[in-house]
């Protein structure tokens, strides 16, 4: 059953047609990846789906709700949370306060303490630095915080935009392990990545985005062995 369905999504920046009517879906329990080069429209897709960028046309159905015109801050309440490109943690707030903001959408704050403990167990570094101002964390720690912050809202669908960006190879492996873990715990994942090799390896299905259109789709394995993907994204 499709948890997220995107139909003919079109986005313009002024007169520039950034997304040329793309359609894709994410099924419950899956890890789905959108891969593509810089400027292909990956981040535009992620941000327009949650209403951070206005859509020109098309529709978005999430968990049975039509969220095409739903304002961004209400979408979190339905169970779709995004770790945005560049992490965008709140630099001036402490680690703890960032996690508090992650739980902002929770109507019932009673689970806050146990959720916090779960995050601190999953990311021990955040526990060590809970009172530190987030802007002083290293890039890897900031990525952990951004993921922890998103999980605080108990998402059914977690969207991650370039989580491996700017991280050392060791940390990249760690991030992908964590994504697999989160998925095993029952959270559906929509991932955007430039690191096609690593992301295809953990994906159930994937789509290739080029110049604002989806040019190829298939299972992670199919795409990883496809001639076109190998040439363009996996270095031959």
């Amino acid at each position: 059953m499709a948890m997220l369905e995107v139909h003919d999504l079109e986005v313009y920046y002024g007169v520039i047609r950034a997304l040329k009517g793309i359609s894709f879906e994410v099924n419950k329990g899956e890890i789905v990846t959108l891969i593509g080069a810089n400027g292909a429209g990956k981040t535009t897709t992620m941000q327009s789906v949650v209403g951070l960028i206005p859509k020109r046309s098309g529709s978005v159905i999430f968990d049975g709700h039509d969220i095409t015109k739903t304002p961004c801050h209400k979408i979190v309440h339905l169970g779709m949370t995004q770790v945005p490109e560049g992490r965008r943690i709140f630099q001036e707030l402490s680690v703890y306060d960032n996690l508090l903001m992650g739980a902002y959408s929770m109507k019932n704050q009673s689970s806050f303490k146990s959720d916090l403990e779960a995050i601190y167990t999953r990311f021990p570094r955040l526990a060590e630095r809970k009172n530190q101002i987030a802007g002083t964390l290293s890039g890897g720690e900031q990525q952990m915080l951004a993921m922890g912050r998103a999980i605080m809202s108990h998402p059914k669908l977690l969207m991650l935009d370039e989580p491996s960006m700017g991280l050392s190879p060791l940390l990249v492996d760690q991030v992908f392990e964590i994504i697999k873990d989160i998925n095993k715990d029952g959270t559906t994942i929509l991932l955007v990545e430039q690191n096609a090799g690593k992301s295809l390896a953990i994906s159930d299905r994937a789509y290739v985005l080029e110049n604002g259109s989806i040019v190829l789709s298939g299972t992670g394995n199919e795409l990883a062995s496809s001639e076109m993907v190998r040439k363009a994204y996996l270095g031959g």
């Binding site: 951070l52 961004c72 209400k74 508090l100 902002y104």
Partner: peptide
């Protein structure tokens, strides 16, 4: 919570919205 949300909004409106904060 509201006070922290004010700081969050002043720093990054988009990220605040992604947390479910009504700007």
């Amino acid at each position: 919570r509201t006070g922290r949300a004010m700081v969050a909004v002043s720093e990054d409106k988009g990220a605040a919205q992604l947390m479910g904060i009504n700007v």
